[in-house]
């Protein structure tokens, strides 16, 4: 016959376990919600991805045309 009698201490342990479980699930839900909100608020986020991308290069003021010499173009 299995022991079925439950001591009062088991009730207290269950209260702790269930409580902590609910807190942890709530925390997971919170972090998920935060991720969604932060990504939405961030707009189009682009980072450096090992290759120069036009959308990420800083906009430089247009250099005067005379500054570019043919020699430079060849060396490039």
């Amino acid at each position: 016959m299995a022991l079925r009698t439950e001591h009062e201490i088991h009730g207290r342990r269950r209260s702790r376990n269930v409580g902590l479980g609910v807190v942890l699930l709530g925390f997971v839900a919170l972090v998920f919600g935060l991720t969604v909100v932060k990504v939405q608020e961030g707009g189009l986020v682009e980072g450096y991805d090992h290759q120069p991308r036009v959308s990420l290069t800083p906009i430089e003021p247009q250099a005067p045309a005379v500054a570019r010499t043919p020699v430079q173009e060849v060396t490039e």
Binding site: I9, R12, R13, S15, R16, V18, G19
Partner: peptide
């Protein structure tokens, strides 16, 4: 001592 969840909340 083993408290309940609400003891830790308290």
């Amino acid at each position: 001592p083993e408290g309940e969840f609400r003891d830790y909340v308290a």
